[in-house]
């Protein structure tokens, strides 16, 4: 067992008088505080962290635009709803984000959907015949994991009727900025893909294609998608914290099983 943390991402030089204080920190070789700060943007730093090299100008713009598109899923989204449950009841800030991450991690508009969609891109690329085979299902290799089996093709809205305008706008906007081929291809093939699935493309589907064009791995795309959706969750949670729980929906309950008061006999 080692006491050392191995990393090709980060290097720290200690202060001469204290090896627990940092004099210089380098990210993939770049001096973060002495050189990058003031020159590089947040999106460029994020790209560098995950990809190991500075982005091209186009990739930086695409990541920045993607971050904007994902920044707030809005209060109807389940991950933001979860954050607001924390906010309205006054939980610590981290609990708000943890709640949002747990809910936003799933296969329905969540991080796992992005992972599956990016994996699908690595198999299908820009080949409509390959997508046709993939979209027929089952969308993920069957395995005995905690993840439920996917119930819809990743990147499409199982409850959708037509492609929402904001999805069309995001796709068009990101495709213009893209240094890769996935976004432009899906912009051209969207109707074909939607007719294959019978479902409209979702924002998650556009985001997955953007991650492909940024050359992020499926795992990198999943985790970054989780991060990029947190700002809206946080903002809405704080808003509900201010408004208080009496102004937040509690909902009626409809019992699908009839409540009974008979004590079941235990097999003892």
């Amino acid at each position: 067992m080692t006491n050392q943390i191995r990393s090709k991402i980060w290097q720290e030089d200690p202060q001469p008088d204290n090896h627990f204080a940092t004099r210089l920190a380098r990210c993939h070789g770049f001096d973060v505080y002495g050189d990058m700060l003031g020159k590089a943007t947040w999106a460029e730093m994020i790209y560098l962290l995950f990809r190991g090299e500075p982005p091209t100008a186009k990739a930086a713009k695409l990541l920045d635009a993607l971050a904007l598109a994902l920044a707030n899923p809005g209060p109807r989204d389940a991950s933001v709803h979860a954050a607001m449950c924390g906010g309205t009841s006054g939980t610590p800030a981290a609990a708000i984000l943890m709640a949002s991450l747990a809910v936003g991690a799933g296969q329905y508009a969540g991080g796992r959907e992005i992972l599956l969609a990016v994996r699908a891109w690595s198999v299908c690329g820009c080949d409509i015949a390959a997508w046709q085979r993939y979209l027929a299902g089952p969308w993920a290799a069957p395995s005995a994991t905690a993840w439920p089996a996917p119930e819809h093709p990743p990147g499409f809205d199982p409850h959708g009727v037509s492609t929402p305008l904001i999805v069309e706008q995001t796709l068009a906007g990101l495709a213009t900025l893209s240094p890769g081929s996935a976004l432009p291809w899906i912009a051209g093939q969207r109707h074909e893909l939607e007719s294959l699935t019978g479902l409209p493309l979702s924002l998650a589907g556009v985001a997955a294609a953007a991650f492909v064009d940024l050359e992020f791995s499926a795992e990198q795309a999943e985790v970054l998608y989780l991060i990029l959706r947190l700002p809206g969750a946080a903002a809405h949670a704080l808003e509900q914290m201010d408004l208080g729980h009496k102004k937040f929906p509690f909902y009626e309950i409809e019992f699908e099983t009839k409540p009974v008061s008979v004590i079941e006999e235990q097999p003892r």
């Binding site: 050392q4 943390i5 990393s7 090709k8």
Partner: peptide, 13 residues
């Protein structure tokens, strides 16, 4: 964790 306990094996400065 002291600074030198990060074993760096990435890009040079």
């Amino acid at each position: 964790i002291p600074c030198e306990h990060i074993y760096y094996f990435g890009q040079p400065p």
